[in-house]
Nucleic acid binder design. Structure first.
Lengths: 161, 161
DNA sequence: GTATATTAGTTTCAATTGAAACTAATTGCA
DNA sequence: TGCAATTAGTTTCAATTGAAACTAATATAC
């Protein structure tokens, strides 16, 4: 009998992984947003777009959507707004004029450079509750879960009944 | 130099805990909702309310909000809709007529009983990627992070500048 | 005891969301 | 080539959201 064992037909939310993930994530996202949203007048989708473009320049809107798990409408609007604020530049791909090539402007980069240390500081504060070894373990476990969801998605699509 | 080490001013999203949590949670939540939302005509907030009431009967709307990290407006509306569908009963607390006492009706319980095995099955599929020991570790790590966010919330409120 | 402050929950209203329809560009293939 | 199917991204519109205002009940202060 392990800590996580339970009767098969009782949903103990406090031990149910999707519930626990959603709980800790909602709190972490809110605490993080507290630190950048108002100060920099950025919505959560806007910051997500800037964050991925800071890390991976010249993505298409689609690719941004994949990396942030946001749908294309949300991405499109965040990019429009960021472009109005001159934080993101959208060009057209040479080889395919449907596709856009998104990148941070120098203004966007400057804001990105201001926010990054703040969010890293927050992450460091959060991680202080874990040993270095635990951090690596957590990273590994999340990776395993991610791989697993990819498999499940593939399976589920094959059996849509 | 550990796996998670990095330069202090570069945001490598693929190693950034809030990003990774948000990524895996979005996918898990979506895969879970796929399994109950349409089949049972339940929105995500509605299912969350039913799930906590199945586990903790006779909560107030406020308490439901705390347990699900949903704001009171969302809870209020989910409860209204569930009540219209005769899945949840709302009574008034004897000792404080502002407070409601929420519980699943027999119909609500029946639906709950149908969904629970499905979501537990999904969780089991997800967890198959981890050893029993890893499951316990993950549980412990999430708990530590939760505790930590509580501390940070308290601190941040004290220094609102 | 009455007035004020606080708390639980609902309603209103404006902003955000995402599904579906759309535009424009590209690919496939007869 | 040329026409149907697909793909990238945007727009439209109806549904969902949450902040702020509100109602009703309780707690606190004087």
């Amino acid at each position: 009998m392990t800590k996580t064992a339970r009767k098969s037909d009782v949903l103990e939310l406090e031990h149910f992984l999707p519930y626990r993930l959603s709980h800790i994530t909602a709190i972490v996202s809110a605490q993080l947003a507290e630190r950048y949203a108002e100060p920099f007048d950025l919505s959560v989708p806007e910051w997500k777009v800037m964050a991925v473009l800071g890390r991976f320049p010249d993505l298409s809107a689609n690719e941004v959507g994949e990396k942030t798990v946001m749908d294309k409408v949300t991405v499109s609007r965040a990019v429009t707004r960021l472009s109005e604020k001159s934080c993101v530049r959208r060009r057209l791909a040479k080889d395919d004029k449907r596709r856009s090539v998104l990148s941070l402007t120098s203004k966007g980069k400057a804001i990105h450079r201001e926010i990054v240390p703040m969010v890293l500081h927050y992450e460091r504060e959060l991680m202080e509750s874990l040993t270095v070894r635990e951090r690596d373990t957590l990273s590994l476990l999340i990776e395993k879960l991610e791989k697993r969801t990819e498999m499940l998605a593939a399976n589920y699509l094959l059996l849509p009944s």
